[in-house]
Every structure is written in C-alpha cells, then in structure tokens.
Design a protein around this nucleic acid. Structure first.
Length: 127
RNA sequence: CCAGACGGCCGGAUGGCCGCUCUUUCCCCGCUUGCCGGGGGGAGGGAGGAAAGUCCGGGCUCCACGGAAACACGGUGCCGGGUAACGCCCGGCGGGGGCGACCCCAGGGACAGUGCCACAGAAAACAAACCGCCGGCCGCGAGAGCGCCGCCGGCAAGGGUGAAACGGGGCGGUAAGAGCGCACCGCGGCCUCGGCAACGAGGGCGGCACGGUAAACCCCACCGGGAGCAAGACCAAGUAGGAACGGCAGUCCGUUCGGCUUAAAGCCGGGCGGGCGGGUGCGUCUCCGCAUCGUCGUUCGGGUCGGUCGCGCGAGGCGCCUGGUAACAGGCGUCCCAGAGGAAUGGCCAUCGCCCGCCUUUAACAAGCGGUGCACAGAACCCGGCUUACAGGCCGUCUGGCUCC
RNA sequence: GCUGCCGUAGCUCAGUGGUAGAGCACGUCCUUGGUAAGGACGGGGUCCGGUGUUCAAUCCACCGCGGCAGCA
C-alpha cells in the first residue's frame, strides 16, 4: 500500500505551516506541521511535504545535498506513515549532512511522533 | 639527480538496490476524439573548468528616435595584427627585474591652462644666496695674518637639508669661479639609413635653455541611445463592462420616451431601426467582399499571479589538411551534446585507487586496523573573454647547478 | 538579473595624500573611613587583504574578501 505524498511549492504554504508553531527539533532536522487550509472535503486530502534549507547552512552545493538527503528520508517514510490532511515542512540544519542516514530517518520519525503526526502502518489512512 | 621557468591536460573508477527530470515509443482506461487527460512498461540523454564573481564585449527582445550630430557623463590610451566585438588574444617596441629559461608595466600630452610638492632647508621653481670662496678699500699688527659689532664688487665650486636643488663627474682654465673651453655621458633640434609603424642605428649641430605630479583638475584621440529572458509574446481564468485626456466628427430619415409649452408646431436630451461616412479584424495590397463597433492611442484605476512559447543547430564540438612566427582563418569529414521552475541530474551500499593516523617491524617496503578523509564548487536566455577559488596527478619544451661516461 | 554603500583601538565613530584621533571601556595613582562621581597618567591599531601610482597611501587606482541596503 503506497499512498501519494504531495509537495509544497509556494511561499504562502510555508508561511502558514510555520504560523502554527507546531515544531519539533531533532539533531539532523527540524519538523513543522500544519493542517491543510484549502481542503475540498469530498476527498481526504493527501499529505504534503516541503523542504527548507537556509543560507546559514552553507553554500549552494551544501544546501542542495542537505535537501536531497531530506527528500530521500521523507520518501522512505512519508508514503506509509504520514497523516492525510497535514502539511509537513522539513528544515535542514548544519548537521544534516554529517548525520548517518539511519539516524536521519530516526530523527524524522521521532519528530513526527512528538507532534502526533505519525501514522502506524496498521492503521487505516482513510479513517 | 636537485632547483626552477613556461605551455597544455585530467580533476576519482566499476557494480548493485531504490528514486528524479526530459525526449521518444508501446499498452490500458476515460471522455468534450486530440500532438486531450489519467495509469503502466521499454529505450535513450541528464552540471563545470571555473556552472562562481558580475569586471568587459556581443547575439536576442522591448522602449525611445528625422539619417545623424553635439553637450554632459562613463570608459579606453606605445605600434602592428587577430576577432562579430572587446578593456580580450598574438607578435613587436620602450622601460624595469632575474646568473638564466623567463617574468612584470593604465606605457598619449607637463611650452593650452590651473593646482599641489608636508617636515627639513638659504631657496621647492619667470629664481634666489644661509654658511661660504675670491679681489679691492679701510682698521689692527713688525710680519704671517686677523676683522662678530666694516664698506664695495665678483662667484656658485664646496658644506649642510631633502624624495627631488636650473645637467653628471674628469681635465684645462681662473683672483675665486662659471659649458668659459675640451672629450665622454645625459638632454634638445637637424640630416641620412633600416622598419608598414612604435622605434632603432649612425653622423653632425646646439649650448644647458626644459624639476616632479595627469591612478590631481585637465587637454587630445577613439568608443558608448536606454533597459534587460522577472526582456518580450500568446492563452486561460477573473474584476471592472471604470475614469481622464487626445486624434476624424459624426450626419440624414423613420419611430418612441422625457423636459420646456394650454395644445400644436418648434427646441433640448435619450432609446431603437435603417442609409451614408468612419474605426478595427480577416480574405495577398489600393478596388471589392464579410464580420463587428462608436473606435483607436496614452495615462490612471481594478484584476491575475496559472499555463504555453521565448528555450537551445550554435560566431557549436571533434579529427585531418592548407595558409600564417603566432593569435587565428579557410576547406573537407564527422557528431547532436542538460533544459529545471521551493528549481531534476540523487539516496544508500560494496569493491578498487589515492591520502592521513596507529600497531607489528625494519636499511627500506609490504601486510593489518581505523578514518562522517578524497579539492574548489551546482546550469537558470545564449555566446566570446577577464578575474577569483581549487586536494591530487599527468604530458611536453626550456634554464641553472652537481655527479658520472 | 541590475545597482549602490560600508569595513579605522574591545565597542560607537571622526580623519580623505605628509608622525592616526575622540567618547565609552581597560590599567595605575590621587581624592574618600569605603564606593560612585571627579582629577592625573598610561597601555593598546597588519587603518579588511593583495598589487600598483606617488618622494610619501587610512586616503588615489585596480583585483579580491566580508557585511548591509535598494530596484525588478
């Protein structure tokens, strides 16, 4: 069972998610969560994810690599464990590049659990 | 072998699993049948030498404009060549550095004008004279000589200051001196020769007349219209069916409504229909036809921030040949080589290569273990340069030194 | 993509060719029974880096590094 995960692409979406102040900090990343605002109520809205890596992290090469590793981590977890109707924003930190990939995935799952945004695989997504 | 100079090149390799994006092709489903939408499979392409800084030059697009010129502003600045062009490149010249290979230089004009040259020093620029030197007179003294408080005249060699002092040091000359004279060097004209030229070489003349600074203002010559792909074009959606100004301007007939009027007539304003004229669009243009309408332009206001094009065949890459010292040019053959849009080109793993550390051990290697060690760095319209960053490595040419034959 | 500005003592800033300064801060001393205030003295600077122009550069020119801001 592989569910779709959408992608946040516009600045207002990021600002709305940041405005909810739902934040969890892990060594390798920071996670923000917010409910989708524009939902049509007929279909259950798919979860969406966006990535932010600021210039404080480093040069363009460093920022690109950090974002790609976060994308890979999200692709490994979100299709099975993201909750529908939520928008996730994953923020890269300076340690994102040096962190082993396994620990990066653990960081993501613990951050999701801490924000009550983690779905166990057995639960039905369309509750 | 060591040290060095210059030019060019590479800048991790192979494989596995899971993904991203573009192109192409096939299959299935759907309907509003079409380069339609959704899903799936196959094949192929997918960062750089600097993609960076944005310091120059172009293409392309829009705006402005009578061909253009001028002022202002900015840039460039020895000569010749290359180039689409350049502030780039190549070859020369001049100056400076290095034993040398070679390297460095914004390198026009200081008799067009203005400004500045601190401190020190007599004096920092049409010259002048502080300490001085010399001669004459005067005074003192027997004399050599002396004279701060004496006079007149000549001189600029010496001293000291400074970054820089109206040629340099040498010989002659002189009372002392002085290009006053002489040779050399420097400087400025002239002539001849070589060179396309910058410039160089030689000869002869002049008589020191001409300090530095133009990356101070400036003068001269040449170049530059402005903005930038978020340029610009189209589609969809959607708001207002808006306001102001300007360009030709509406006119005639019928009918109807309102106002003025007691009513009619008449006048004014509006609606509808038609004719003529006008605008816009299409048909290849003036003719003509069709459609549509008050139109078009500018500015403001309002709305949208979705999609498509621009967008990659190019001053293109590679190989060979020819011309040229070279930059480069020409010819022939061959290849098609990224196109994202919160932005693809990746994540994880294994093996090899290189580097670092440790241990065992050595004259040295090798082997073993560990390493979150493997440079600088990510296309955003494209191209030519410049500049800056860069672990490690390869190739070629040349210079100096040492040793051996 | 385009365009400006800034970098000077630990901090905030002057200085714009000629030996680099002010305020605050810091140190020592005086004053006080003691502290603060006040007074006296003092230490501190690769003037962001490099190359050049000039006799001489914080200042002028060029090239970098870092930071800030504006326009689209």
């Amino acid at each position: 069972m592989r569910d779709e995960v959408g992608r946040l692409r516009h600045r207002p979406d990021f600002l709305r998610v940041a405005g909810t102040r739902q934040k969890a900090v892990a060594p390798g990343l920071i996670l923000q969560v917010g409910k989708r605002g524009d939902v049509g109520d007929a279909q259950p809205a798919i979860p969406r994810v966006g990535f932010t890596v600021t210039r404080k992290v480093g040069s363009a090469v460093v920022r690109n690599r950090a974002r790609r590793r976060l994308k890979a981590a999200a692709a490994a977890i979100f299709p099975a464990h993201a909750l529908p109707g939520l928008d996730y924003v994953v923020i890269g930190r300076g340690a994102t590049l040096g962190r082993p990939f396994i620990l990066l995935i653990e960081d993501l799952t613990t951050a999701m659990r801490r924000l009550n945004a983690y779905r166990n695989q057995s639960e039905s997504p369309t509750a």
